[in-house]
């Protein structure tokens, strides 16, 4: 029986820039940051309330199983904002929204009451979409 998820992956255009966005803007913690081989970097971050769920900030680099055409295509798709990667939860969405906005995070939707809770929409520095959510207090 599968019980939980421990790793997930977000494709990013530039790992240095993604580091700055996820750590200095979103406030995530670096879990692992290790360079290996030629230009490869294993970079994972975790949210403060979920230290054992690693989010891999995966650079789109060519490799033996990842030919140039495929890497170029993926880079274009990410840049075009094709992917919605997930939902980040917070305790107080209005405070989080205000802080992220002050730090330059781009929101496409400000916090709004939906039937499942309060939700805002933002994109990361690569163009990946996320919901920022706060569950309705029962």
């Amino acid at each position: 029986m599968i019980t939980r998820m421990s790793h997930t992956c977000i494709y990013v255009l530039d790992q240095d820039s993604a580091y700055d966005f996820y750590v200095n803007k979103l406030g995530f913690t670096v879990h692992t940051d290790a360079a290996f081989g030629e230009g490869n970097r294993w970079l994972t971050v975790t949210a403060k309330g979920q230290p054992d769920m690693e989010i891999t900030l995966m650079g789109i680099n060519e490799g033996p199983m990842f030919p140039k055409e495929r890497a170029d295509m993926l880079r274009e798709l990410v840049k075009a904002g094709t992917f919605g990667f997930g939902v980040f939860e917070c305790d107080d969405i209005y405070a989080t929204y205000e802080e992220l906005k002050a730090k330059g995070v781009k929101f496409a939707k400000e916090p709004k009451e939906e039937f499942y809770g309060i939700e805002a929409l933002f994109s990361d520095d690569s163009g990946n979409w996320f919901s920022l959510g706060q569950k309705s207090k029962q």
Partner: peptide, 29 residues
């Protein structure tokens, strides 16, 4: 440890899908 043996910290699905082990330069690690 992460710097000297990065593959001890990277799940196999990522290593396989990217073909990182195909590159002989990484074998030592």
């Amino acid at each position: 440890a992460q710097q000297s043996k990065p593959f001890h910290f990277i799940p196999g699905c990522y290593v396989s899908s990217r073909g990182w082990l195909e590159n002989s330069n990484f074998q030592e690690a």
